[in-house]
């Protein structure tokens, strides 16, 4: 395996959790809900999936538990912001803090346990092709799943009636309500989807990326996922590109250090964030002022007003 190929493989691993979590958040935000609880839901996904995977010795059960944990946290968030029309920013931050704390409690008995690696796909012939074999046909199922998910979310939002309803609710919930569209129900499902994706991203971290669990292991990836949605101007295609740009910047700066390029490592560590700012700048230049922010984003909806 060449160094170039190895770098590409690492980039895929680094990008996948960001992509999955960002897609979930994108759907929630397109419905008009700003969910700042992604980090907490991701932490819960990482802890619960690892706990379940170790207890039942099954990666599939682990993944299921991670998705479920994310969705349960999302349901709690939905109850507060939809049921009680509470401030979304405050509630989201509370869910993040709660999730980080609770994940520590749930994961405590599993500190020090380890899991064997999840076997990657192996297609005889195809996987053994030089250079592109491992990259395209030798990844784990999460990677293919995340790409299918990107396509599904894009098709759902842009090509289906349900997607159109979700978008119109996100743009203007009062008008949508006036037309008789189910605002709260749609948002509830969008939040659940977002939580499930965050949980899945967490499961990827603890089951594939590091293969052990330790407190606070999400280390801010939930926040990066939130930034990516803005970076992508709320479009699935750009979430995909953004996640890979971000993953690549993170991995390449480490390689630049190992290759002794002589650039200060602190500066290289900042490259992904500089890339985000640059992308935001270019996007707003291209699109002018309207860069795709859903009109009702972050505004609580109370049906009777």
């Amino acid at each position: 395996m060449t160094t170039f190929e190895a770098i590409l493989l690492t980039i895929v691993t680094a990008s996948t959790p960001l992509l999955i979590a960002s897609l979930g958040e994108l759907v929630a935000e397109r419905s008009g809900v700003l969910n700042l609880g992604v980090e907490g839901m991701m932490a819960m996904g990482a802890a619960c999936s690892f706990a379940a995977a170790v207890t039942f010795n099954s990666t599939a059960i682990g993944v299921g538990a991670g998705v479920l944990a994310g969705a349960v946290m999302a349901a709690l968030f939905a109850l507060v912001v939809l049921g009680f029309a509470a401030n979304q920013v405050g509630s989201g931050l509370a869910v993040t803090i709660f999730g980080l704390g609770l994940s520590g409690l749930i994961g405590a008995p599993f500190v020090g346990a380890r899991r064997d690696p999840v076997a990657p796909l192996h297609l005889p012939g195809l996987t053994d092709l030089p250079v592109i074999g491992r990259l395209f046909f030798g990844q784990d199922l999460f990677v293919y799943g995340s790409l299918v998910l990107t396509l599904a979310v894009a098709l759902y939002l842009n090509r289906t009636r349900a997607g159109l309803i979700l978008r119109s609710i996100g743009e203007n919930h009062a008008s949508a309500h006036g037309l008789g569209l189910p605002v709260l129900k749609t948002r509830f499902l969008a939040i659940l989807f977002g939580g499930a994706c965050a949980g899945l991203a967490g499961a990827y971290l603890s089951l594939v990326y590091t293969r052990f669990w330790s407190p606070g292991m999400t280390a801010g990836r939930g926040w990066i996922a939130l930034a990516l949605v803005v970076f992508a101007a709320w479009r699935p295609k750009w979430v995909l590109i953004g996640a890979y740009v971000f993953g690549a910047a993170t991995v390449l700066q480490l390689h630049a250090q190992a290759a002794q390029f002589g650039v200060p490592s602190q500066l290289l560590s900042a490259v992904p964030y500089l890339a985000t700012i640059l992308a935001l700048l270019l996007l707003s230049l291209r699109h002018g002022r309207a860069i795709g922010t859903p009109g009702s984003l972050g505004v609580p909806f109370v049906p009777d007003r």
Binding site: T3, A6, I7, T10, T13, A14, P17, L205, Y209, T210, F212, S214, G216, M217, A219, G220, R221, T250, V251, L254, H255, Q257, A258, A259, Q260, S265, Q266, S269
Partner: peptide, 27 residues
């Protein structure tokens, strides 16, 4: 000797990437 700085005491995923970067470059 090749050195890579993670610029973090504790970020398991990034530490793993730092390790992989070194291994990919012949360490």
């Amino acid at each position: 000797l090749k050195v890579v700085w993670a610029n973090s005491w504790y970020d398991p995923a990034k530490e793993a990437d730092a390790g992989k970067a070194l291994l990919d470059q012949g360490v």
